[in-house]
Amino acid sequence: MSGFFQGVADECERCGRGPANHAHMFWGCKKLGRFWAEVFVVLARIVEEEVDADPLVAIFGVSEKPELMERRKADVVALASLIARRRILLAWRLTSPPGVVAWLGDLDDFLRLETIKYELRGSSEGFEER
């Protein structure tokens, strides 16, 4: 098995630093700093309260102190961070980081689909409450 990984670079495709593990590729890469900063600014606007730039939120979609935010808002943050991670995955091997505009487009697309799902179920009010 060790022969399989021989010759595989351990450096990040974006910044050239290693080790290029999951924590680095989703949070620690210096080239992702601006992306995550902008994501957290937008999240704070969406939930109308401060959302600290936190690696637990960025990587897992949860806060270290979930009791500080009401459940509905925590769900929004979790979903939006999932879509941000998806955006990072789509640009995994690119040297430039993903853009917040692309993330907002992804978020908008997903919310449209969720709206349709709730409307088909006859519960569009339930979607708006969430």
Rank of each mutant, 00 (worst) to 15 (best):
E125H: 13
C12A: 13
A23Y: 12
G7W: 08
F110M: 11
W92D: 02
I46A: 14
I59M: 14
A23M: 13
M69P: 01
G18E: 01
V62W: 08
E129I: 01
P97N: 06
F5G: 11
L94G: 07
F35L: 06
S124P: 11
S123I: 03
E38W: 12
V8A: 12
G61D: 08
G3L: 03
R93M: 14
R112M: 02
G16S: 13
E70H: 03
S96N: 11
L104C: 14
C29P: 06
L107S: 10
F26Q: 05
N21K: 13
G28R: 11
G3K: 10
K30W: 07
S96H: 09
A84G: 06
D75M: 09
G16T: 01
I59L: 15
K117E: 12
E11P: 01
A84Y: 01
S123L: 03
L90K: 02
G122Q: 14
D75S: 12
E48S: 12
L68E: 08
G3A: 02
D109A: 15
E119G: 03
M69R: 15
I88R: 06
A80N: 03
T115Q: 15
E70N: 05
W103R: 10
A23S: 13
F35D: 01
V77I: 15
L90M: 10
R130G: 14
R85Q: 04
A102L: 06
N21Q: 02
G33C: 00
V77S: 15
I83F: 11
C29I: 06
